[in-house]
Nucleic acid binder design. Sequence first.
DNA 1: TATGACTAACTCACTAGTTCGTACATAAGT
DNA 2: ACTTATGTACGAACTAGTGAGTTAGTCATA
Lengths: 217, 217
Amino acid sequence: MTSQPVTGERRRDADRTRAEILDVAQREFARRGYAGARVDEIAEMTRTTKRMIYYYFGSKEKLYIAVLEQAYSVVRAAERDLDVAHLAPVEAIRTLAELTFDHHDAHRDFIKLVAIENIHEAEHIRKSQALANLGTPVLGVIERILEAGKASGDFDTEADAVDVHMMISAFCFFRVSNQHTFGALFGRDMTAPEHRERLRRMVGEMTVAYLRGCHRP
Amino acid sequence: MTSQPVTGERRRDADRTRAEILDVAQREFARRGYAGARVDEIAEMTRTTKRMIYYYFGSKEKLYIAVLEQAYSVVRAAERDLDVAHLAPVEAIRTLAELTFDHHDAHRDFIKLVAIENIHEAEHIRKSQALANLGTPVLGVIERILEAGKASGDFDTEADAVDVHMMISAFCFFRVSNQHTFGALFGRDMTAPEHRERLRRMVGEMTVAYLRGCHRP
DNA sequence: TATGACTAACTCACTAGTTCGTACATAAGT
DNA sequence: ACTTATGTACGAACTAGTGAGTTAGTCATA
């Protein structure tokens, strides 16, 4: 046993220090953007100093990339846990859309980071070996649902898995990412509790209606 | 007659100087974000000096707000020119969706500015008397289409105009705003010419299918 | 139409305060 | 003893904003 009590924290703990820096940095980058975030401020919000940020991450940019990698890894883990294989195509895709909605609802910081990264035209993601061209498990899930749905006659569409993923993501992402300008201009907070259930149903219904191909007479 | 030739430009021209600063600033803010944009750099890209930016706009923030106001006024002008009143409900909403698609496709800088403003939780829009709570003409257009469609029996939906506007905007906005991260992760550029027509049809079909209410057995 | 007073538009040089990053010293744990 | 982790203090480059003076264009009046 070390000199530290069981309930206390060790004075030097590389893992904890690194993790704490990452968490604080995520909040700060999500809040202020890459250029707007301040390394000194991130340091102040941790129990350590700025020197440690440079010790562990080397530079502001590398810290930011590490934040992105961690954020994406959380999302991918959630996607791997998706289980809709036992459902019939219509219910499977509806459920997938609603779970995507829930996930976006619960991970606001992640959405902000992605929005920020798009302003920078994904230059940091492209610099990350861990992220570039990595894809995501959902694509496979959607592909299987689409095939099953077409085979059963439930679906009639020319769209592929990437298209459908985009359609669902667009709705769920936009509702959160654009809540502030949308709210300021139209006086409706799309993320408010009183709209949540209706909009959640809406993604599911939208996706199902589209895949059934019931546009045109 | 003044000392200047008719076709030439005046050496001192407040309107032109102001307009040039605004245009350059729009590009720069859209490119780098609010914090990332540099007043000195904006000045260098104009035919005038930084001192003039402060002379006309007072501060970096006021310049940014002026840029936002100009960008939104362009959008609103386009929305006022919308003409779908002569179309039957189904064709009207499909056309509206496709025109929204075209508009987003053509105004990339505007989309970036809106994304940036959302990262700042719309604090600048709220500071602008010209923008806060101004709404948009499309809402009225959508409202009329929805009423007509319900009356004719073409539409069966609980969604209101704001919901429908959000659904269409989400698709069109996301395709452009998230093109870079989406492209980096899935290897597909949603804004590339080979996807344009298919995705354009997709917004229209998605909206029509949803409003017809053909989800559920 | 020439003149001179007046003001809006403009230039230049500067500063106070940040901000990322690092050199150097030191303590903890093995 | 020796490596890993941590803290302090500082500096070079940048960045928003300004003080003070200058020029171009306008307009009333002789």
